[in-house]
Design a protein around this nucleic acid. Structure first.
Length: 613
DNA sequence: TCCGGAAACC
DNA sequence: GGTTTCCGGA
């Protein structure tokens, strides 16, 4: 049986603490599960298994009994417990591993995000994620939290708003998870477990240590957090700590990448949850100007943060993370485009494309990076989802084969993305005027909304050719296939085409059937004229501002059609015969020719500049 | 075995 | 809000 370490999977200590349960003073089931999982004595009852974050309940009755004991619910049984677990489905904390009995899988990212303090922009007093999850080792290389003082460490995040969380208050936990209900809690603390008396540590050290998973090797820890702040306080690398699968990819949020690098293929057996390729560097970066947290609280290197965010964003996709995963980066903005000749990253869709400029540059040139993530709303409950295509909507978290599910297996999508001719769904990032609440963050699968632009490249999986993925069939999935399934089955990491994206130029193969008339990049990807893109951008903005997200979701298709109708004719006008670039300006009037000329020029320029699309 | 609605409970 | 309990359905 694998341990988290076996699978390269590890939750930080905080994840095991009932106190870290956001918004709840009582231990939550998933915490309890984690507790059991981390305790070797329960490995014959419940244990990590195979996939990243996946665990199997070997003895359902016993687990239920333990849970019942913990909650003083003698009548607890697996049926009830499993019901509770099922509630996590919608919360994206957990999902069922299809086909495997008693096997579930944690949504690592969800947990991570839930416990990320610095996402709480509104009240963030500190960006230091004392309760931060184990930042995937990949990120580690660049990203580290700078906890140095209690104030740095302590965060007003939701989880910290919970009493006792990571405070100097001794924590109750551990064995208490199976307490006899005498007091409903346990007196054993993690500190005690590790031989550290509660209160012995400086809060900062303790908090920092809490970030670390006990099974993380020092190496991993260093990679993740830079350097051991308190070696003495480092979690043990127990005898059961198997070698970590550490992804070599510096920016990968996960230790292992199931995805092929620019040239390799990975065994499908690898967890889809595991990270990304070096090619996928999210060109996102927090905007200091927009992020109170970053601007006033976050003190660490913005570059690191940016990388971290990139990696994390990738993880969101690669780990099928809930769209809400982005919620914690409400003000993320796409970094302004970089000159292709900056030497960072290879051709579009291939090499890493790390921003080479400091974060503040964006503040200086806000006009270039006004885009924010806009995540799609979380999937509706089954009830709401149920519709003509409900069948395919059920696969949200299914990594394993989900027969008949059009949107099935995000994982397989991810893993086979580079292998399959079918273009993976793209995820669009919509610019929104204001991000006040996480609910406003939305990532929409482009497969549903073909009209979007700016962001496409960001999420567009690299095409094997080095370009963007080929245009998927327009007869793509229906709206009912929406939500995270679509969104997160986008396997591939975002390409390095950020610069292009930011310029508003990107491959939008499916859009308007533009492909045939649009310039074709060396990679074979067609581009949409900048002007057109702007127009569509504008149209989209207008549309977005008009109604609520929900309303939009419902009307998305109709609107798309509408939008298409609106734009397409213009395309016809501007581009003339869209089927042939050569004929772009031919039959047009003066003004139209000018437009076409501009479009061509812009396209050509962009094509040359970015050599992407 | 799993799912998710519904209602109740704390 | 997070279960707990019950239950019908797949």
């Amino acid at each position: 049986m694998k341990t988290p370490g076996d699978t390269g999977f590890a939750f930080p200590d905080w994840a095991y603490k009932p106190e870290s349960s956001p918004g709840s003073r009582q231990i939550q089931l998933w915490h309890f599960i984690l507790e059991l999982l981390r305790k070797e004595e329960y490995h014959d009852v419940i244990a990590w298994q195979g996939d990243y974050g996946e665990f199997v309940i070997k003895d359902p009755d016993e687990v239920a009994r333990l849970w019942g004991a913990r909650k003083c619910k003698p009548q607890m049984n697996y049926d009830k417990l499993s019901r509770a677990l099922r509630y996590y489905y919608n919360k994206r904390i957990l999902h069922k591993t299809k086909g495997k009995r008693f096997t579930y899988k944690f949504n690592f990212n969800k947990l991570v995000l839930v416990n990320y303090p610095f996402i709480d922009m509104g009240s963030a007093g500190s960006g230091v994620p004392q309760s931060a999850p184990p930042v995937p080792s990949g990120v580690s290389t660049h990203f580290r939290f700078p906890p140095s003082t209690p104030s740095d460490v302590l965060s007003p995040s939701e989880e910290l708003r919970s009493p006792g969380v990571f405070s100097a208050v001794p924590r109750r936990i551990a064995r208490g998870s199976v307490s006899d209900c005498s007091d409903g809690t346990s007196t054993n603390s993690e500190l005690e477990e590790t031989g550290i008396a509660p209160g012995d540590e400086r809060p900062a050290d303790r908090a920092f240590r809490n970030l670390l998973h006990p099974r993380l090797s020092h190496d991993s820890l260093f990679r993740v957090y830079g350097a051991p702040p308190n070696p003495a306080g480092l979690p043990r690398s127990g005898p059961h700590a198997p070698p970590h699968r550490v992804h070599p990819e510096p920016l990968s949020p996960f230790p292992v990448s199931p995805l092929p690098g620019p040239g390799g293929l990975l065994a499908p057996a690898l967890s889809p949850a595991l990270s990304m390729t070096p090619t996928s560097h999210m060109p996102y970066t927090p905007s200091p100007s927009l992020s109170p947290m970053l601007g006033s609280h976050f003190s660490f290197n913005p570059e690191d943060m940016k990388r971290y965010l990139q990696a994390h964003t990738q993880s969101v996709y690669n780990y099928h993370l809930s769209p809400r995963a982005f919620l914690h980066y409400p003000n993320i903005v796409i970094p302004q485009p970089q000159r292709p000749d900056k030497g960072l990253g290879g051709p579009a869709g291939v090499g890493p494309h790390l921003p080479s400029h400091p974060l503040h540059h964006q503040a200086e040139e806000p006009h270039l990076s006004p885009f924010k993530f806009k995540l799609q709303p979380p999937p509706l409950g089954r009830k709401q989802r149920e519709g003509p295509n409900s069948g395919s909507a059920a696969a949200s978290f299914s990594y394993s084969g989900e027969p008949g599910s059009a949107s099935n297996s995000a994982s397989s999508g991810m893993m086979t993305n580079n292998l399959t001719p079918a273009g993976p769904p793209k995820i669009k990032v919509e610019p929104i005027s204001d991000m006040e609440s996480e609910e406003e963050v939305e990532v929409t699968d482009i497969s549903e909304e073909e009209h979007e632009d700016d962001e496409c490249d960001v999420f567009s999986p690299p095409h094997p050719n080095g370009g963007l993925a080929p245009p998927p069939n327009l007869d793509r999935m229906t709206d009912d296939d929406d939500l995270e399934e679509d969104v997160f089955k986008t396997p591939a990491a975002p390409t390095s085409g950020l610069g292009v994206n930011l310029l508003g130029l990107k491959a939008e193969p499916r859009e308007l059937n533009l492909g045939q008339g649009a310039p074709i990049s060396p990679g074979g990807t067609r581009c949409i004229p900048l002007k057109l893109r702007f127009k569509r951008r504008w149209s989209e903005d207008q549309r977005m501002e008009a109604g609520t997200e929900e309303a939009e979701d419902k009307k998305s298709r109709a609107e798309r059609e509408e939008l298409t109708q609106e734009v397409e004719p213009k395309l016809g006008e501007e581009n003339g015969d869209r089927k042939s670039p050569e004929t772009l300006a031919a039959p047009l009037g003066t003004g139209q020719r000018r437009v076409s000329s501009e479009l061509q020029r812009a396209t050509a320029q962009l094509s040359l500049e970015n050599n992407v699309c």
